[in-house]
């Protein structure tokens, strides 16, 4: 079955998208599936795949598209990556990211909802969270641990 673009895809903005493509491959194991370069070798458009998801990696192509590196490290969105392959290890994934130059903001830690997660910044300051489900837990257990009420909406 051919891979299809997911219905939702984040487009992440970089001052140096070419360096970002390499970093995202080295650090997270993302795979380039589409790259369009202009006559000057600049990245016109690119898409990377990870499991069933994808991100677009682009430049600051309008005055309103800025990398955190251009606006004092601020951002309004972060991208969450979920490891789908049970053979993957999130701790190993974190070490791979660290070795590739990611700044680990929060080391891997198992959360009350059964996922083990870590958080890191890429070289231009985008925050990425990475998670993997390591234990089956129920909303009742979440409520007992945190006091927060959980409402789970069934899919259509």
């Amino acid at each position: 079955m051919a891979w299809k673009r997911p219905a939702l895809t984040s487009a992440v903005v970089y001052k140096d998208p070419r360096a970002a493509l390499k970093f995202l491959e080295d650090a997270f194991g993302f795979e380039i599936i589409l790259l369009i370069e202009g006559p000057d070798g600049s990245v016109g458009h690119s898409e990377m795949r990870f499991g069933s998801g994808a991100v677009m990696v682009g430049s600051e192509w309008t005055a309103e598209h800025k990398s955190p590196a251009s606006i004092g490290g601020l951002m309004t969105q972060t991208v969450h990556v979920q490891l789908e392959d049970p053979n993957d290890s999130i701790d190993a994934h974190c070490e791979r990211a660290r070795a590739a130059g990611a700044v680990i903001v929060a080391e891997p830690e198992t959360q009350f909802y059964g996922d083990r997660t870590y958080r890191c910044k890429d070289p231009e300051g985008h925050i990425w969270t990475i998670g993997q489900t390591v234990a089956a837990t129920t909303p009742e257990e979440w409520e007992a641990q945190t006091g927060l009420k959980t409402t789970v909406f069934k899919e259509w």
């Binding site: 051919a2 380039i32 589409l34 369009i36 370069e37």
Partner: peptide
């Protein structure tokens, strides 16, 4: 340098 398109499957 020339423009190019790259795809990977």
């Amino acid at each position: 340098m020339a423009s190019r398109v790259l795809i990977s499957v």
